[in-house]
Design a protein around this nucleic acid. Structure first.
Lengths: 246, 246
DNA sequence: ATAATAGTGTCTGTAAGACACTATCCA
DNA sequence: TGGATAGTGTCTTACAGACACTATTAT
C-alpha cells in the first residue's frame, strides 16, 4: 500500500497533458498611451495564420519554459512590442470560447497597460509583427480586428473610462515629470469633457500621490508651472467619490 | 499559388495542439452566501490527485466539447455543486504560474458568485466531491486550501468588500423577497460595521433597483415591514460615492 | 399600555462644481 | 503694459452620517 505522497508521485509520473483535449491559452495586451493630445492604442499586424495580415492586439502564447507566471508573460510581450520597462500593468479579464480562434477552443488573459509615449520605441522589422499606434476618438475608427479583439478592446476602453473617474490611474499616461495642468488635460482627454480646475487640484492634492519637485518649474510666457512626479512606490489612489455625478 | 483563404485552411489542417507545450486551464469558483447571519464560502474536498483529500475551491477543467465559452463552464460547475439556476456570477481574475499545480504550468479563470442560501441544495455522495459551507469571520479560520486557493480566496473576499461599498451587489445574497432591514443587515455582515438606517434607505431608494411588492409585508410584534424584490432585468447599480468615507 | 421594530425628518459635515480672483512669467 | 497660463478663495450643491422622531403591529 502506497502512502499519500507516494500515490501522488505515481499519479504525476503517469500524467501527460497531451492525453487531454484542452484549450489554447494566450495573453493579450491593450496598451494605451497619449500622443498629440489624443488617446491611442497599440495594434500589431499579424505575421502568421490565423488572421495573417490583419490587425490585432499584441499578445501571444505563454512560454511555459521562460515565463514563471502570467504577469511575466504579459511583461515579456510588452517589452517585445514597446521596449518599455516599468509601465502600469493590470489584468483586465479573461475571454474564452469555442469560436474565437479557428484553431479550436481558446482562452486569453487580457492585460491592460498605460505607458508614457516618450518612453516607447516600437519594435519593427525582422520577424516582428509591425506595430502601430491608432488614435481613439469620435472621428477615427479602428481597423477591423482579428479574433474577438474588437470586443476585448471595448471592454478595456470602458475599464479605462470608469477607473479614471475614481482613481489616480490617468497619471500613468504621462512622462515622469509633469504639471498639474498636464495631468488635468490627460483626464479631460480620456473622459472627453472639461473638468473644473479648482476642484481637480483640490482632489489631486488630497490624494497625496504626487511629489512636488522643489524649485523645478516649466517656463513659458506665463507664470511658471510647478513640476510633479508620481510618489515613489505609491500604488493607485482610489477616491470615495467619482469626478462627475451622472 | 494558394490564395489567402486556402493558405489558412491548409495551415489549420496541419495544426495540432498536442504538438506544443501549453498550460493546463481550469475554471474555479468562489461562491459566497449568508447563513445564520454570517458570510460563508463553499469549499469542496478533492476526490482526486493532486491534493487528494484536501479542501479547495470548487472548479474543474473546461470541457471543450460541452462548454461553448468560459461563462458556460462556470455555470456548469456552479450547477454541479449547488443546483442553483440564476445566481450572480462575474469573472474575478485569472491566475497562472509554473508552480501552482504540481502537474505543471497551469492557469485558472476564477469566477465570483453570490447566491441566496435558501436556493441551494449541495451536491453530495456518489463520485461528487463533498461540498461544505465554511463561515468567514474573525473567530473562524478556513482550513488549509489546495493549490493557490488561499490567495485566490483573499482576492475574492477583498473584491466583495470593495464592491459592496459602492454598488447594489449585496442584494444578491438575499432570497428573492426581503425587507430593507434584511438588506441592511447583509450589508452590515459583509462590511463588518453598523450603517445608519436613514442614510442607507435614502441610498437604496435613490438606486431604484428594487420593486416594492404592493400590499405585501412581513409581520411581527411591530410595525409590518414592506417586502421588496430586485427589479427584473436590473443589473448592478453603481453609486458615485462609497458608503463610508475612510 | 408597552415593547419592538419599521420608517421618516432635520441638521451637520465633507468634498465636488462654478466661477471669479490673484500671481508671475514673456514679449 | 498686455496676454497668457498658473494657482487660490468663496459660495453653492449633493449626499452620507447622526440622531431624534413618528408609525404600526403583537401581546
Amino acid at each position: 500500500m502506497l502512502n499519500k505522497a507516494q500515490s501522488e508521485k505515481e499519479f504525476l509520473k503517469n500524467y501527460n497533458i497531451h492525453d487531454y483535449d484542452i484549450p489554447l491559452t494566450s495573453v493579450d495586451l491593450v496598451i494605451f498611451t497619449i500622443r498629440e493630445q489624443c488617446l491611442h492604442v497599440l495594434l500589431v499586424k499579424r505575421g502568421d495564420f490565423p488572421f495573417k495580415g490583419e490587425w490585432s492586439l499584441p499578445g501571444g502564447f505563454i512560454d511555459v519554459h521562460k515565463d514563471k507566471d502570467l504577469d511575466a508573460t504579459a511583461l515579456r510581450k510588452l517589452r517585445e512590442k514597446t521596449g518599455v520597462r516599468v509601465p502600469y500593468l493590470e489584468q483586465l479579464q479573461g475571454f474564452g470560447s469555442r469560436t474565437r480562434d479557428p484553431r479550436g477552443w481558446s482562452t486569453t488573459f487580457v492585460y491592460f497597460s498605460l505607458i508614457a509615449s516618450d518612453q516607447i520605441e516600437l519594435a519593427h522589422g525582422g520577424t516582428a509583427d509591425a506595430a502601430q499606434w491608432f488614435p481613439i476618438n469620435a472621428e477615427s475608427r479602428l481597423p477591423k480586428l482579428a479574433f474577438d479583439h474588437a470586443e476585448i478592446f471595448q471592454v478595456a476602453l470602458q475599464r479605462l473610462y470608469n477607473k479614471v473617474e475614481y482613481s489616480s490611474l490617468a497619471a500613468h499616461l504621462l512622462p515622469t515629470e509633469f504639471t498639474l495642468t498636464d495631468l488635468q488635460q490627460v483626464y479631460q482627454i480620456v473622459l472627453g469633457r472639461q473638468i473644473d480646475k479648482s476642484a481637480f487640484r483640490k482632489r489631486i492634492k488630497e490624494g497625496n500621490f504626487l511629489d512636488e519637485l522643489e524649485g523645478q518649474f516649466r517656463y513659458g510666457s506665463n507664470r511658471p508651472a510647478q513640476l510633479y512626479r508620481i510618489k515613489e512606490g505609491s500604488g493607485l489612489v482610489y477616491y470615495s467619490r467619482t469626478l462627475s455625478n451622472e
